[in-house]
């Protein structure tokens, strides 16, 4: 456990001692802030539909998925690929740290960075609360839960891509492709019917996020996101193990 936390600490220090982390946070909050401003302006018009501004922030717009993909890809693309490029992987692999501890340490660090980024969006909740006295916090809590679970899933994908790639760009491309394919299930669901449609519906991330943003926590959504995370973490560990024997 201590070794795992040491790796997490090392990765976190690497993030926050680099100006890149702040550039990412600046861009993340700028885009989210602009989106929030646009939503508030649009909803202030009398003919606007009765939609909660926070439900659009969390999964109700294209920008949510764009930001989630960008931030998870940026924080994970260097985790394995950079170590390989700098030649520090060999040192790590020969140290008395298990593959699981290495993978989980890196995963945890990326996830903490992701959580920190989303925690800064709490300011939007306080702003909405200031204008809307009867704000229901249930859907807000579940929206954050959904966002964190989706982040875990995407980070595990990014981590796996980074473990199998030789450089950061390739890692980012692979991760983005997998994430986009998962989001594309919505389209497959739309064009299919019967049982196939039900299966695609189960895996549809847009539907899952819609549930969370409305305040519905569905065990199917939790299981899918958690099992998906575990699946890619296991793959990452296996790729690391394969590298050890190369």
């Amino acid at each position: 456990m201590n070794k795992l936390l040491a790796i997490t600490k090392k990765e976190l220090l690497h993030y926050f001692y680099s100006p890149m982390a702040y550039v990412v946070l600046w861009a993340f909050l700028l885009i989210n802030g602009f989106l929030f401003y646009v939503i508030l302006s649009a909803l202030s018009k009398t003919a606007s539909p009765p939609v909660s501004p926070l439900s659009i922030i969390f999964g109700g717009s294209f920008f949510f998925y764009l930001l989630t993909i960008v931030i998870t890809v940026v924080v994970t693309m260097r985790l394995g690929a950079e170590e390989r490029k700098q030649g520090t992987f060999e040192t790590l692999l020969t140290s008395p740290i298990s593959d699981f501890e290495i993978v989980m340490g890196k995963f945890l660090a990326a996830f903490i960075f992701y959580v920190v980024a989303w925690l800064f969006t709490l300011i939007y909740v306080f702003i909405v609360k200031a204008y809307q006295k009867d704000l229901d916090f249930g859907p807000i809590i579940s929206s954050y839960l959904g966002t964190l679970l989706l982040g875990m899933f995407f980070i595990s994908i990014g981590l796996f891509s980074s473990m199998i790639s030789k450089n950061q760009i390739v890692s980012a491309v692979i991760a983005t492709l997998i994430m986009t394919m998962l989001l594309g299930i919505t389209f497959l669901e739309f064009i299919s019917s019967g049982v196939t449609r039900e299966i695609f519906h189960y895996f549809d991330i847009l539907t899952i996020m819609d549930n969370f943003s409305k305040g519905i926590v569905d065990s199917r959504n939790l299981i899918y996101l958690l099992s998906g995370t575990a699946f890619f973490i296991a793959l990452s560990e296996k790729s690391l193990e394969a590298r050890r024997w190369q």
């Binding site: 229901d136 916090f137 249930g138 859907p139 809590i141 579940s142 189960y202 409305k214 305040g215 519905i216 926590v217 569905d218 065990s219 199917r220 299981i223 899918y224 099992s227």
Partner: peptide, 12 residues
Amino acid sequence: SFRHFKTYDTTF
């Protein structure tokens, strides 16, 4: 999970 599921309503 598809066959046996539960949903929780968090709205007040």
